[in-house]
Amino acid sequence: MKKFLLIPIVLIAFLFLSGNVYSQCNDQLQTSCSGGIGSDYKYLKNFPVKLAKSSKEAPVSQKYQITLNSGTIYKFSACNAAEFEGKVILSLYYGMNPVASTYMADTKKHYPSIEFPCKMSGSYNLTFYFEDGKEGCAVGILSQKK
């Protein structure tokens, strides 16, 4: 009798749990990531990232153009959705020139955020991809120091 009852309970639980996981990849992730920017920073923008599995050597990336002002201290934060294995790497470029990244290749270390005191007003490219081309969902947050 108990076994018969267990099956529908498991099915119902799966239904609700899968719904929560799905929403975590969207608004919940952005809200929790924004909450981590710190009280001395003002939220400016978010950048949702969702990428399918791609090649390890040349992972597919998602790009955004942003404009940054000289004299402003910016912070870039990146957060991964828990249900995906992929670890996001956020990189900032000026044209083709690398400026900053949340991943240091020489130490193989990921950083949850980077602080960028901007001295050159300009258009920059923000690029996101997942380490080793794994499938992933993440959000990037841009904030400025108060």
């Binding site: 000026y94 400026v99 240091m104 950083y111 980077i114 960028f116 005191p117 001295k119 050159m120």
Partner: peptide
Amino acid sequence: SLVIVDNS
């Protein structure tokens, strides 16, 4: 935390 020193 990682801090970038902008030289541009």
